[in-house]
């Protein structure tokens, strides 16, 4: 009876260990290319390139010289017109973070988060104490809007494929509609199935 129990336990252990999934942590910087589609490495390279471009080009100096204060930017819409589903937020957040950490550019909230902020402010009008209640109409108005697009070109035949992604970001003066900066990152890939 004991030996049967031992064999059964050994068999169960063998089956469970043989079928178990193996997961290992990897450095996000070293994300390997698996399918050839847009991945973490592409997002990171795009963020690095665009961050270095936007923080070093002369539009910041020009604005500070003209207005005597640092520019305030709001993030607008990014349109993905490529052939893959790409979420721009992954590299846009890196870019926004660089604005704050560098202290060269001010950033104001936009989109659904801004709606939530205003809703909270509205809630405070009837629920918060007068001394702590935040007033409407005192938001910091953005000087520039950051908008973008993602495009791709695919050339494929038999098992070979080349894909070129082009990410463009544009910074426009909200008052004058003047485009003060255009950032670009191109990524080309050769995929063999």
């Amino acid at each position: 009876m004991k030996s049967i129990f031992l064999y059964a336990t050994a068999a169960i252990l063998l089956v469970t260990t043989a079928c178990s999934r193996k997961v290992t942590r990897i450095d996000p910087v070293d994300t390997p290319d698996i399918s050839g589609k847009w991945n973490n490495t592409d997002s990171r390279l795009t963020a690095e390139e665009l961050t270095s471009q936007i923080l070093t080009e002369k539009w910041i100096g020009d604005y500070v010289q003209a207005k005597g204060k640092k520019p305030v930017v709001i993030v607008g819409m990014v349109t993905n017109k490529s052939h893959e589903h790409i979420e721009a937020e992954t590299f846009m957040k890196d870019l926004e973070r660089s604005f704050i950490t560098s202290s060269k550019i001010g950033l104001v909230q936009s989109g659904k988060k801004r709606e939530e902020l205003r809703a909270e402010k509205a809630d405070q009008q009837t629920n918060a104490s007068v001394s702590t209640m935040k007033k409407f109409g005192l938001e910091n108005g953005a000087d520039f809007i950051l908008q973008g697009s993602i495009n791709s070109i695919v050339d494929a035949y038999k098992r070979k494929k080349t894909v070129t992604y082009q990410v463009n970001l544009e910074l426009t003066n909200i008052e004058t509609n003047e485009v003060v900066w255009i950032g670009e990152k191109k990524i080309a890939k050769n995929v063999k199935n």
Partner: peptide
């Protein structure tokens, strides 16, 4: 007009890939 602020609008297309 502001509903898509700070979002990625997906207007993707299907690329022709011989192998796929």
């Amino acid at each position: 007009l502001l509903v898509n602020m700070n979002t990625t609008v997906q207007q993707t297309y299907k690329a022709y890939d011989w192998y796929e």
